[in-house]
Each structure stands twice: as structure tokens, then as C-alpha cells.
Amino acid sequence: MRPFAYERATTAGAARAAHTGDAAYLGGGTNLVDLMRLGVAVPDRLIDVSGLAHDRIERRDDGAIVIGAGVRNSDLAADRTVRAELPVLSQAVLAGASGQIRNQATTGGNLLQRTRCPYFQDVTKPCNKREPGSGCAARDGENHNHAILGHTLTCVATHPSDMAVALTALDASVHLHGRDPLPLAELYRLPHDDASRDTTLAPGDLITAVEVPPPGMPSAYRKVRERASYAFALVSAAVALDVADGAVRGCRIALGGVAHRPWRAYRAERLLTGMPATEESFRRAALAEMENAEPLRDNGYKVPLTANLVCRTLSDLASGEGGRP
């Protein structure tokens, strides 16, 4: 591991000022320390932001819920307000990682974790995300767990976070030190011609909190993986659904494990709004979202799996299973 300087920041301003050159912020370290050990991340300085006073979950007067960037994943998932009013968020966090890692990992760090593409993590393989211009070993390699939507010749990696999928369905924004808040829809990006950037953040931007608008709809998270626990998603769905008089009044659908970013299924949402809340409508909308899917050699199974997952999660919410607002 490359030697690095370490400092503990006491204010967000001091942390921001200390972030120069190849510095990196350290939260729980559960992804960054691993990437440093693998030689994928090589910061020359770590700025520890875990001691900043960003460790609370508060409800604002307007009903929005503001989650400090330093709130540990386990504390977020156990928070009574979050469990009762944002079940999709609590469920998503609990569906990820292990009890140990959720105790260490922070909200801000979870959002900025890197892809688990095995070629990204292997410094002997070409990877445009790790080393721009070197190529993509996954595109024609072992790619059963890679993207089916929005990928390019440059990169077929998926975003690994469960929490970010739930927050995308909840229309959340990040608070940044010294900058205007940024909706998650604008935080994450597709690879386009530069896979090295997962987000639109500039070097040194510091997430201080996540803001979730006032909860309104019942919501649920469902994740499919290769074993029952402690595995990344093959695909996942975060769904919020509002049904009145048997018709869909509103819905929000975000997908994990299918793209370089949490994938908001806008097309399915548009098709569903105003339609009867029936399995037939749900299936038609889910299949429509998959029309643009471009599976790779090994991951064609994700197309029907995702459609089934969305359909099933919508059906459960419509029948009253899954979380209340």
C-alpha cells in the first residue's frame, strides 16, 4: 500500500480545505481501505471525516428527513422514523453487507462506494474506470453480473449500493459543503465516454447529509442475489406506490444491479400513472422499461428477472403488503 498522510478533520470547512491532490475522505473505510489494499485506490492523504458532527437524523419543519453523512448504516436502518415512514430505505440498508460492515459504513460513504466489478478490482486487467483508455475486460469477459441498461463500449459495470437505489426512488438529494444540494438523479451518471467518474461531483466535494422529501407513499425494497444474505444484488427494485380507487395515482421505481447508476424506471412510471392497479398493468410497464435492455453475453437472465421483480413488488404494495408511508 502506498504510504499516506492522515488527518482527522474537525469541521467540514477544514476537511474541504485539506482535500488537495490525491487526497481522499475517510468515513467508515469499509470500501476505501479494501481498494487501497488492492492497489485500486492510491490516495496520498486521508482526511478522516468520521468525527464531523454529521451524525444525526432529523425531521425538518417541512416534513423532510435529513440524514447526516456520518450516520452509520446500522443506525439509519434502525431509526424509528425511517423504519416507519421510509421502509424502502431501512429494508435496502438491511439487505446490504453484514452486521459488522453496517456498523462501520457511513451514509456518505455508502453513496460513494465503487463498483464491485472484479476487473475493476484486479489491477492486472484493463479497466477504463480504474485506468481510462486501458479498455474494458468485462465487456467480453465474465459478465453475468454486469449492466443491461445504459452501458457503453467503455464500461459495463453496475453501481453496487442498495441504499442509493432506495434513495433514488425517494427523490432524495445530497447536501454538499459550500454548494447547492444535488438530487441523486444528477449525482450519479452513466459511463458515456468517461467511466472513471461514478458521479458528477468535483474533486474535494464533501457530502454532509442526505435529504429525503416528506414521505407520502407506501414503499418496499426487494433484492435478488446468489445467496440469501451478505451478497451484492443481481438485480433489486425500490418501489413506492400510491393507489386510490383502484388506480395508480403515483409511483416511483428505481432499479439496482442493472446499470452504472441506480436506474430510475421513468418509462414504467409514466405508463403506470392513471392505470388500473392490476398485475396486468404492472407487467406491461415493467416489460416496457426492459425494451431498451441490451444484455451482454452472460446476463440475459437479468431482463426477465428485473421485469418479474418490478411486477411482483408493485403487486405486493398494491395488495397492502410492504411498508406503509
Binding site: 469499509t30 481501505v33 486521508l46 462501520q104
Partner: peptide, 9 residues
């Protein structure tokens, strides 16, 4: 709290 000591600097 339980934690993975390998991931903690």
C-alpha cells in the same frame, strides 16, 4: 459494536 478489524485503519 462488532466490526471487521481488517477494514479499520
Amino acid at each position: 459494536r462488532r466490526a471487521n478489524a481488517c477494514l479499520a485503519l
